[in-house]
Design a protein around this nucleic acid. Structure first.
Lengths: 203, 203
DNA sequence: TTACTGAATAATAAACGTAATATTCAATGA
DNA sequence: TCATTGAATATTACGTTTATTATTCAGTAA
């Protein structure tokens, strides 16, 4: 059993940081508990005082990375000033960029996420839910401003996520450059925005 | 070398039909050339007088199934009378239904397509292109009617395909029932239609 | 000549043993 | 007492051998 100690939180963070570096460099399967332990200067056995196993480390790391992406997208979107439609557009573009950059900078992370998401799709669902909440927030803002008219903002957000899911999965995005993806997504967002705006007029 | 004979065409069809039954029942890898040959009452060696190998059979079959789906969707859409927006809506719903039914009725075909599409994505691209052509046709009809205003119908069709790609891949659709998928797609199509229509007003 | 096959060969997948790794736990030292 | 570990055990990945399957081709019968 893991003893609940004050130092736990910092140690868990340390372990997760070490694990992230290893996973990013080598992928999931080629990263050993021994390697993670060594990076933390502890024995492999001691890792089990903080996590129930490799799976828990991976799950918590994936959740953490997902949360960080969501937070960055939300923060960058908040900084956008302009009409609500610009915020939505920015939100979806930022989302693509963040997803792309996370996977692009570390080859191992593609492998890592592929394995995690196959065995634990609930992680992806949790990420999508968090992400959707941020989108719903912006949608409500648009409704308050009178720019959007939506009967069910929650459902609308689900639809928008469904429409843009392509840009979250490397299996499709990897064939295209970020620029090409942005171009296509911009076109799609243009349609989606017209579709949810109160007036049918665009630019 | 394959001898070019009159009988070839019928035999190739026979082989493809037998192969489809085998693949549908057992998936790609567990279907042997011997089994296909047996179903055709010929020797395995004779298969090579009609196809260069197992891969060619699979590719041609996948192409054929894709073309059949496209054709059915196109035909059913043509039968829809009503405003163009109804045709588009119908087109996208039919597409979902056809894709779903093809994969739903034979467990082996999911495996089959997964393998084919991973090694030969050009098959998927060809299918999408054919399918897009049908969509573009409807879009032009809408433009002629004055219902749609689109600068680049081709690009618009690409965007719509990107938005609805989720409904073509079992990895996501398999978790949901056809009814749930239809509901979500209907919501999405509603947005997309408003997005491309000349007037921002919906029903 | 040609559609067709059996037997030979090449490629691929399955089975299996082995090595590496994940996980547990009794023991230790601070 | 409790954070920590070394050594024991259980899993899992890896490489190698074996069996199955794909493919070729010389040959046969119609």
């Amino acid at each position: 059993m893991r003893p609940a100690k004050l130092t736990d939180s910092v140690q868990r963070g340390q372990i997760l940081a070490a694990a992230e570096a290893e996973f990013a460099a080598r992928g999931y399967h080629k990263t050993s508990m021994a390697a993670i332990a060594k990076a933390c200067e502890i024995s492999p056995a001691h890792l089990y005082n903080f996590f129930t196993g490799k799976t828990e480390i991976a799950l918590e790391l994936a959740t953490q990375i997902g949360a960080a992406v969501s937070a960055r997208v939300r923060r960058k979107t908040a900084r956008v000033d302009g009409p609500v439609e610009e915020k939505i557009r920015a939100f979806l573009l930022f989302d693509l960029q963040e997803t792309y950059s996370v996977l692009d900078k570390s080859p191992g992370l593609i492998d890592f996420f592929a394995i995690i998401l196959e065995k634990h799709p609930e992680i992806a669902n949790a990420f999508l839910a968090t992400n959707r909440d941020a989108l719903v927030e912006v949608l409500y803002q648009g409704i308050a401003d009178g720019v959007l008219k939506l009967a069910e903002p929650q459902f609308t957000a689900e639809c928008i996520q469904a429409a843009t899911i392509k840009y979250r999965y490397p299996q499709w995005t990897s064939a295209l450059t970020l620029r090409e993806l942005e171009l296509e997504l911009t076109g799609l967002v243009h349609i989606l925005l017209r579709g949810i705006m109160n007036t049918g007029d665009s630019h």
